[in-house]
Design a protein around this nucleic acid. Structure first.
Lengths: 206, 206
DNA sequence: TCCGTAATGAACGGTTGTGTTCATAATTTT
DNA sequence: AAAATTATGAACACAACCGTTCATTACGGA
């Protein structure tokens, strides 16, 4: 059915026909993120997730009482842990490394699912996700940017009063906007352009 | 029913009980924008728009074959015409006036509906709206910003190589992001902060 | 091997929404 | 005034989905 048959894999050991426990939950979480990305939270259905995970609705309802609970657990399980700020020796180097990482994260499957959720935060039905998005995505991002800028300040490269909440929002905002406007991967500015055209002019000492 | 009765308005002239033609279409467009804002495009239904406009589905289907066609016509009808760039005599003044206007537009009913559509451009079902959003919202905005910056350049206030497509995207991107993150009206940066903290440092000559 | 547990696929009653049709009534045009 | 047009509200068959239940089967552990 879903795992390959023993014959197909050429293995002597018996391979289970059914997933159970954590293996099934992983598949369900993966299907959940995929559905978030393709149809959004508004149109995500338990039936759709079950079909995508190649299981039955009953297996979902045994674990989660609602679509919201399922999506919340899927996000919790798949969001990456906090990262440390890069330290390349120069402000520009740090910023380019950081923006490159942000870019990679945004184009990952988890990143795409998070963007889908963020698109719906304006609506009542997705409001419950604001907290997790802020705590696990927005604030860690802001913190990393602020950390890099603080180190740059110690090196005498950053204008102290330039680091405001507005400024630390600029890069994620810009990247999300460009993705949304349909620029695609090829149309995305590279990390160097973002740093050199936007961020450095704002923060660096003349 | 929906228009007030003659007695309620104290008028001698007979007031129609039913809206027809353009009056009905205006009501339907208004209901459409309202539904976009409250439930989003994904969950907008013909039935919901009809109920909100206090009319019947048949009146909608007589005019529009689908939800997409209705929403497209509603946007076309309600998007404001192009504006001219402000000219206050200084770069900073122009930018503040422009950002103030953008802010007003974003918090208008039409603006909220456009933001709702923009949130869904990542998804296949709303992809048809990319063109109108770019042509009637994004490009006019970008053009105004570029115009103000060009005038600033003539005045010797703007660093010529600073005006890039990335830079002209910064302000709308930032405003949309802040709204989405639930800052609400009170948490929005005022136009002066956006101009002084973000845009001017990028573009102005030292 | 046996037993308890969990997965599977199907079915169910109920709700919501689609696109259509229709009888009636309101309104405009002739 | 009569005819034509359009709005209104209701109803319809169908599809999709919800949340639940169930019989059967697979699987892990004792």
């Amino acid at each position: 059915m879903y795992p390959e048959s023993p014959a197909a894999r050429g293995e002597a050991a018996a391979v289970p026909l059914r997933r159970r426990g954590e293996a099934l939950e992983s598949a369900i979480f993966e299907a959940t993120l995929h559905q978030l990305t393709t149809v959004g939270y508004a149109r995500l259905t338990m039936e759709g997730v079950a079909a995508c995970a190649q299981t039955g609705k009953a297996a979902l309802y045994r674990r989660w009482p609602s679509k919201e609970a399922l999506v919340m657990d899927a996000l919790r399980a798949c969001l990456p842990p906090a990262r440390t700020a890069p330290d390349t020796g120069s402000l520009r180097g740090d910023l380019i490394e950081l923006v490159t990482r942000m870019r990679t994260a945004m184009f990952s499957e988890t990143g795409a699912a998070v963007r889908a959720i963020m698109n719906e935060l304006d609506h009542q039905r997705a409001h419950a996700f604001l907290e997790i998005v802020v705590a696990r995505v927005v604030e860690p991002t802001t913190r990393l940017i602020a950390e890099v800028l603080a180190r740059g300040e110690l090196r005498g490269e950053v204008r102290p009063e330039s680091v405001t909440p507005l400024v630390t929002d600029v890069v994620p905002a810009l990247m999300i906007y460009r993705i949304k406007m349909g620029c695609g991967v090829l149309g995305q500015p590279d990390a160097e352009a973002i740093v050199d055209e936007v961020l450095l002019p704002i923060v660096q000492l003349p």
